[in-house]
Computed example of a mutant assay.
Amino acid sequence: MRKEGNAQPMFRVAVIAGVGLIGGSLALGLRQRGLAEHVIGYDASPEALQEALALGVIDEARASSGEWLRGADLVVLAAPVKALPALARELAPFLGAKATVTDVGSVKASIAREMEELGVRQFVPGHPMAGSERGGVGNASAALLENAVWVLTPTETTPLTALSRVRRMVEQLGAAPVVMPPDAHDNLVATISHLPYLASLALTHMVARDERLSLLAAGGFRDLTRVASGDPRMSRDMVVENRGALRDATRRFIRQLEHLAETLDQPDELLAAATEGKRTRDSLPVVKRSLLPPKFDLVVATPDRPNQLGIITNALGLAGVNIKDIEVLSVREQGGALRLGLETPDDVTRAGELLRELGYETRGRG
């Protein structure tokens, strides 16, 4: 039985090729929202398939390709980016002519070319901008894809019907579809995703080479270098696959750093740069992801006492204030701060008044 089921599922049989974090989350979303009658998980790992079955992520497990694939009307390639071409070549001979095919890889131009060469015409390249440092199907959750920007990068040969179908699926999963060409996507993610990974590596390497630095690396440094804690092999493959666009982004970044270094002797110019940086960063709430509907922020100063998060969220929940996202801005010995993403300016006003009555200092921002 499906949760939140639609009257008519979009797909009779959906195949998730790769039941890891993203593939598993997509499978759960399809099941929980009633978008597919039957979800088959395909993976080379028997352990991953067994875990996916045990957790109710999939209805059926398959460890090898074959004629059974012809019954699928949705096939999602959810393998790591380096493995996508080989996976596509393995499955392509068995795909039905009318099957809608998409993928979740973080680099789009290469897989788009591969599928075109294989003659898969119902292919819609895609990239949900979601993830976690904790991989594997055991950490999968349909909520991981909710409110995520999901980029779709059709090519000149992508049928409009296939694009429309995948776009509708993305919307039904609670994500926000954004359509752009494959090359444009790769250039953009080189800057906002792949470059931060290289920068994190550079900073962590500097700490690794000087033990004194590690003694001073507190919360801010850990936040800045969070992406360096992801799977090293998968992260390497991701950035190597997009190396052309990433080299260009790295050169631009180096020029920015050099310019900022020059402003160290020009305090007014550095202040202007810092003000612009703060304004840009403050306009990007965590779950908003820049292209989703606006959220309104309330910053709450929290003392260094137990259960502060529980007290705040419980009080707002009892008052009927819906918290859309939470970000820990800082943690220090004397306390820290939370940023609460709320739905309306009225929610910010009500929440601020309530929390101030409880003794918290607050500041609205929207």
Rank of each mutant, 00 (worst) to 15 (best):
K3R: 12
E4C: 05
N6G: 10
R12E: 12
R12P: 06
V15S: 15
G18P: 09
L21E: 13
L21K: 10
I22V: 10
G24E: 15
L26A: 01
A36H: 01
V39N: 05
I40C: 01
I40V: 13
D43F: 00
A48K: 07
Q50L: 04
V57D: 05
E60A: 00
A61T: 00
R62Y: 07
R62T: 04
W68L: 03
G71H: 10
V76Y: 12
V76F: 11
A78H: 07
K82I: 12
A86H: 15
L87C: 10
E90I: 01
F94H: 15
A97W: 04
A99K: 08
T100M: 11
V104I: 12
V107C: 09
R113N: 06
E114P: 01
E117H: 11
F123R: 15
G126P: 06
E133Y: 00
E133C: 00
E133P: 00
A148C: 12
W150N: 07
T155L: 00
T155G: 01
T157C: 06
P159I: 10
T161N: 11
L163H: 05
S164A: 12
G174Y: 06
G174E: 05
P181L: 00
H185L: 10
H185G: 08
I192E: 07
L195V: 09
Y197K: 02
S200Q: 06
L203Y: 00
H205I: 09
R212M: 11
G219F: 10
R226Y: 01
G230L: 00
M234E: 12
M234K: 09
M238S: 12
A245L: 14
R251W: 00
R251A: 12
H259G: 14
H259I: 15
A261D: 15
A261V: 13
Q266L: 12
Q266G: 08
A274D: 04
A274W: 14
T275V: 13
R279Y: 03
T280W: 12
D282I: 03
S283H: 02
V286H: 02
L298A: 00
V299R: 01
V299N: 01
R305Y: 15
R305F: 13
L309H: 09
I312V: 14
G320V: 10
I326C: 04
V328Q: 15
L329P: 10
L329K: 14
Q334M: 05
L342V: 00
D347H: 15
L354G: 09
L354P: 02
L354W: 03
L355I: 14
E357R: 13
E357G: 05
Y360R: 06
